[in-house]
Structure formats: C-alpha cells, structure tokens
Design a protein around this nucleic acid. Structure first.
Length: 713
DNA sequence: GAGCACTGC
C-alpha cells in the first residue's frame, strides 16, 4: 500500500477566497450579480495599473494564475481605455476552440451586448463576428491563417496571446510572427512619420528581417501593435527575454488550497498504486469526487475493470463508488457521463487521460491521483517517424493536475511517486515545435514571406535536422523551387489549403487525374481522428460493420465508401428536415455502424471547406466513377514518399527510409498483404505500424514519381 | 492479430 507523506501546500491558505461571499452574490439579480462578480475578481483592483503598463510598453507579459479573470477582463479594460478607437480591434487568441467560444459568450454577457456584435469569436467553421466586432476571441491557428491574407494584421490595435505557457506549435509560430509584425509596424509608422516630416518620398524601408512585410505596405501607415502575452506558468523570464526584456507583471489568482502528498518510495506498479489510493480515499476521506490521470484508453479500461472487481469484495454499504472513463476517442455522449452528478450517496471516480488536464474541467473534483506519467508524441526527423511513448510529466504539468482538485473548495492531490522524484522532473514540457514534423509550419512561414527558416527567430528553435528534413520533403512534393522558394502555383496553392502538405499535394494531383471528387473525401477522412470505433466488448460486431464498407483496394477507398454511404443517408431521408433532426439520424446511423459520429461530422465539415478552396483555385473537380485504377494511380503519385514493399516474412520495407514496418491490424489489407502499397501514417507503439494503406503497382512509382525513384534506384 | 495523449487551420 503506498503510504503518503505530506508535501508542501501549493498556495498560502490565507488566500482562500470567501465562498460565503460568492453564495451571497447568487441572491443578486442577473446584471447586478455580473457587475459584482467582475469587481470581485483579483484583476479588477489593478485595472488602472495594467492600462498604464500597456500604454507605456509595446509588449507586456502578464502572469495570471487560474481564476484571476485575465482572459475575460483584460480585453474589456482595453476597450474602455480607448484601444479600439479608429475602428481597431482587440484580438485574443486561445489554443482551443471551446475556450474561444465560451469566453466570448461570457464577455458578451458581461458587456450586455449581443454575441457577434461588439464582442465575438471566430474559429474554424464558425464565425460569430461582424463589422462592429471590437473584442474578438479566436484560436491561434485562425489568426495565423488571417496573417496570410493580411500580413500586417492591420485591423488589430492589440493582440493578446492567452495560455502562451502551453507552447503549442501555433502559439510558437504566432509569437515569432507577431514579433516581426510588431517591429515592421513600428518601423513603418516611424518611417512614415519621418517621410511626412521631411516631405520626401524616397524613404527606403528595407530591413533584413522584415523586407517582405515592409515591401507590401510601403505606402501605408500602420499604428504600432501592442502585444500582451499571457501565461499561467510562474516563470515569465523566457517570454520576457524573447521579447527583448519585456516587462512582466503578476496578477494574483484565486484557487483553493490543495494539499499534496507523495509516496515514501517509488511504486513499481503505478496502476496498482492508483487502485489502492482510489479505495483509500473512498473509505477514509470525506465526500468529493476523484480524478485519476492515466495514459491511455487501455489503462483506463483495465483500471475500470479492476475497480469494479474490488468493489464486489467490499461490504454492501461501501460499494457506492461509480467509475467514469473519459478520453478523446470516446464518443461524446459517453464523455458526457463524466459531467453528470453521481447518484445520491455515490462517489464518482473519473479515469481520465490528459483531456482532463486542460481541455475539460469536470466539476466536483476534490481528490486528484497523479501517477506522474503521460503518453507523448515524439518525432524522429531522420526516420521520419512519429512515436507514442509514456514519459514522466513536467513540474508545471504536475501543478496543473493538482490544481484540478482546488476549483470549488480545498482539495488533496496524491502523487504516486516520492517528492525526490518530483524535484528531478523538468520544469516545463518540451515545446511541441521541438517534437513534431515541421512541413506545415515551414510551408506557412514561406507563404508569409519568411524565406530564411533556419534564421527565423523561434522562441525555441527546432533542430537543424528537423528543419532540413521538412524542407527536403516540401521540395520533393514540388512546393519549393531549387532555390528553396515557394513555387508558383503549386506551393502557393498548397499553403492556402488547411491540410497536411502531402494531402494538399494529393488534391492538386487529383485534379489532373480526374478524381478530385474522391480525393477530397479521402483527405477529409484522413484528416480526422479514427472514423471507426470498436469498444472491446463489441469487437466482433464492430468488425462485421466495418466489412460492409471495406474495399479490396485498401483503406482509402473504404473511407470513401463510408462517406458515400453517409451522403446517401442524408440525401435519401433528410430533405427538408431541421439540422438537429439530421444530426440525430446521422448519429443513430453511426452508432449502428460503429462509426465515431464526431469524426465523421468533422470530416464532412473539412470536406465542404476544402471543396470551397479548390473550387476557388479553379481546380477541376471531377469524379473517376468506377475507374479505381485511376484513383489508385493518383494515390501512388501523391504518396510516393510513403511506399512500401512486402518482404518474404510478411513485413514491409518502407522504400524511402528502409525501415521494416507492419500493417496495422485495423487496416482492411491486414490479411491480404499486397506486394506493393502506399500508406499515410507511420507510428511506433509496440511495433512500427503503418496505417491507411492502399494497394498499388510497383511499376507506377518510377512512372509517376521519376524524380524520386529513377535517381534512387 | 492491436490498441492511438491532446490540440489546430
């Protein structure tokens, strides 16, 4: 049994906010209540000071802990302080869609305006803004897209990058870009002022870093751009240094205290330790739900089984414990169970992946169990292979996890490792940009006019090998010229499409192969999480359902079949029905066919978006009908970098890297094992598995990708 | 014959 030693408190308990005070607020009428609530937020008392800081500093770092109110209040302060004069907008970026939407709704309510008017949001597939929007919440990825159309982000007077400590790829690219834009805008502003002063027209605005931005806008004047970087991590130094010693201010948070406990010794079996801790809490601690952080679906399912088994060994009266799993691949209706109250007298134990760390907040959590591990993706640029491995979390992740116990009252966090192990953890998680394939990032930067990728001012520079590998890949796809410039029209078109570059290339090729109709569906389906969902207990049924759609040609055509079947359903039965009704029928059909309806809907959204894009580009949208040969030849031409040949033992050799790989058992070609194939994904888990596979003819490779295969062989 | 954390355009 893991014995717990008390660790230090996370926060000073005297900072404990007054819950009674909050309850009193409920008695106020709506509007008064909101106003009172705003005034009670920690950030409210520093409004004037913050606005002075923004006026005097072009870049400001704000460190605000959970519950400080920074995300909802700061944009309102800026609006009231006059930062939207001359019709300018305040932009606030979020790493996640759901945050952009919920915060915008909240702020519109606080301002007493209709959502989409003065306060709005914009995320992919959904735009709730208008000409009068002055406070605009959006995802960071969307702002990056906006920069492609408006390189100076000229409509914004202030851009706030929220949750910057998460260091997603989008945040990191955005930070580098904003730094350039800010410099370029101040320079254009100052130069313009000087030009006007001296009544000269020959001012040259060339600047090594910002040449392109400046060239595009020489004749226009832009007011300087204010940047505010908001982070929840205690260490603002990194951001401050990156922005040339920018000023950092600290805003107090409002969290309840969480007691942290460690084990005396390292636990050899953390699942068993988690199990014991669950029951220890259940039997010995006061009411409150438990949140356990596990690394994946399999672990969650096995802990769930074990909890249920052990529960049966307890006396009748102690069995009131309800397990609820939550992970991203779980269908949404099952995810919802985590948010429901447990029946009276029951305690809920939520078995969650990282999804519960930031993406969703489950109410009622008083106890957190943290084994200190996470399943993380890493990328090997030399092999061009991703892997999913279980690694220790960082200190900031551990704090984020324990904080989940202090949302509504004081809580307890049980770390299933000794305190000495905690001290050895990295301070923060390695930024994603250092552990992913950079092809998309580089394509975007090239399209934004950044030619010298190796010299780009990243906050954390990816390895040279990783950059070079992606440049090489983009060159082989025809997106870059011999001089490493964006090619026209291919590279430019590829950068316009919100897809993995390989998929963008496939669309362009498909217009030449007369199968763009099919390829649009294929890449939309490949761009979402797994379409098929097979719960362990119904695996046979799921397999039978999947066979209804499977094509002997491979997974690509099988996915097209699923999409066509859903099309047919929507055409046949849904003319004139409301959107809700349609959604309901589609969900039912998905359930019957073991298809993840969230994934399919997502694919349908992507499909309609990219269809719009390719039509606008003037690509020819045609169907190859029953000519599967044509479609497979197009797959070979598109995915030639991912071709593999069968070996005598039944494994495959990937031609580009020489690696020995295996077909993933979820593929429709798992048994057929054709001689030559193309695939879309290579991930190392227990084996090196390739997924999403189609059968091709070996001879097509040298015919359709001679620039690669003739020189190689 | 296996199992894939999480985001985002």
């Amino acid at each position: 049994m893991p014995s717990m030693a008390q660790g230090g408190r996370l926060r000073d308990p005297t900072e404990n906010p007054n819950k009674l005070h909050d309850r009193k607020l409920d008695a106020f009428s709506g509007k008064q209540n909101l106003a009172q609530h705003r005034k009670s937020l920690p950030i409210a008392s520093v409004e004037k000071r913050l606005m002075d800081e923004v006026r005097h500093n072009d870049t400001l770092i704000i460190v605000g802990e959970t519950g400080s109110g920074k995300t909802t209040q700061l944009p309102q302060f800026l609006f009231n302080a006059g930062f939207c004069r001359d019709g300018k907008t305040i932009g606030i970026t979020q790493p996640r869609r759901v945050a952009a939407v919920t915060v915008a709704k909240r702020v519109a309510e606080e301002c007493g305006v209709e959502l989409g008017q003065r306060v709005g949001y914009s995320i992919r597939f959904e735009d709730a803004t208008s000409i009068s929007t002055r406070i605009k919440y959006m995802t960071d990825g969307l702002l990056l897209r906006e920069a492609l159309l408006d390189p100076y982000l000229s409509r914004y007077s202030v851009i706030i990058v929220d949750e910057a400590h998460e260091r997603t790829v989008h945040t990191d690219v955005l930070l580098g870009l904003l730094k350039n834009i800010q410099r370029a805008r101040s320079k254009s502003f100052n130069d313009r002022v000087n030009i006007e002063k001296n009544k000269e027209n020959n001012g040259t605005l060339s600047d090594k870093d910002n040449g392109v931005f400046l060239k595009q806008c020489q004749s226009r004047k832009f007011p300087p751009l204010k940047l505010i970087i908001m982070s929840a991590s205690l260490d603002a130094r990194g951001f401050s240094e990156y922005f040339g010693g920018a000023r950092a201010v600290h805003v107090q948070g409002r969290q309840f205290p969480v007691d942290t406990f460690y084990t005396h010794h390292a636990e050899p079996d953390y699942l068993d330790a988690a199990l014991i801790t669950i029951f220890q809490i259940h039997l010995e601690e006061g009411p409150g739900d438990i949140l356990v952080f596990l690394t994946g679906q399999e672990e969650i399912e096995s802990v769930e089984r074990l909890v249920k088994e052990r529960l049966q060994q307890l006396p009748e009266g102690s069995r009131k414990l309800l397990t609820v799993p939550i992970f991203s691949a779980l269908p949404s209706e099952k995810q919802m169970r985590a948010f429901r109250h447990a029946p009276a007298g029951f305690r809920k134990v939520i078995l969650a992946t990282n999804i519960a760390e930031t993406s969703v907040t489950i109410p009622g959590i008083k106890y957190v169990i943290d084994p200190g591990l996470v399943k993380a993706r890493s990328y090997d640029p030399v092999k061009g292979m991703e892997s999913l491995i279980i690694v220790p979390i960082s200190k900031s992740q551990a704090l984020q996890r324990s904080g989940r116990a202090g949302r509504e009252g004081s809580g307890k966090c049980f770390r299933l490792y000794p305190e000495s192990e905690f001290d050895k953890l990295e301070d923060s998680t390695k930024p994603e940009i250092k552990r992913c394939n950079l092809s998309n990032v580089i394509l975007q930067l090239k399209a934004l006019g950044v030619d010298d990728i190796l010299g780009f001012d990243f906050m954390d520079k990816p390895s040279r090998a990783s950059i070079v590998k992606s440049l090489e890949q983009l060159f082989l796809l025809g997106a870059l010229t011999d001089e490493c410039k964006l090619s026209d029209p291919v590279g430019r078109q590829m950068a316009q499409l919100p897809l993995d570059p390989v998929y963008s290339r496939a669309l362009i090729l498909a217009s030449q192969f007369n199968c763009l109709e099919e390829m649009l569906i294929t890449v939309a389906m490949l761009s979402v999480e797994s379409i098929f969902y097979g719960p362990r207990e119904k695996l046979e049924e799921a397999r039978t359902a999947m066979r209804r759609f499977s094509s002997p040609e491979g997974d690509h055509l099988s996915l097209v079949n699923v999409y066509h079947a859903s099309d047919e359903l929507l055409d046949k039965r849904m003319v004139g029905l409301s959107k809700e009704k349609k959604d309901k029928i589609l969900s039912k059909w998905c359930k019957e066919n073991f298809i993840n309806s969230r994934s399919l809907r997502h694919a349908r959204d992507i499909h309609s978006q990219i269809r719009g894009h390719v039509e606008q580009m003037g690509l020819r949208v045609a169907s190859c009908g029953d000519d599967m040969l044509q479609f497979r030849r197009c797959l070979a031409a598109s995915f030639f970098l991912n071709a593999a040949l069968r070996q005598p033992e039944g494994t495959y050799r990937a031609l580009a890297s020489g690696q020995v790989v295996q077909i993933h058992p979820s593929s429709v070609l798992f048994r057929a094992k054709p001689e030559c194939i193309v695939f879309n994904e290579l991930v190392q888990t227990n084996h090196k598995y390739i997924r999403n596979i189609s059968r091709i003819d070996y001879l097509w490779l040298s015919e359709l990708a001679p620039h690669y295969y003739c020189t190689q062989n």
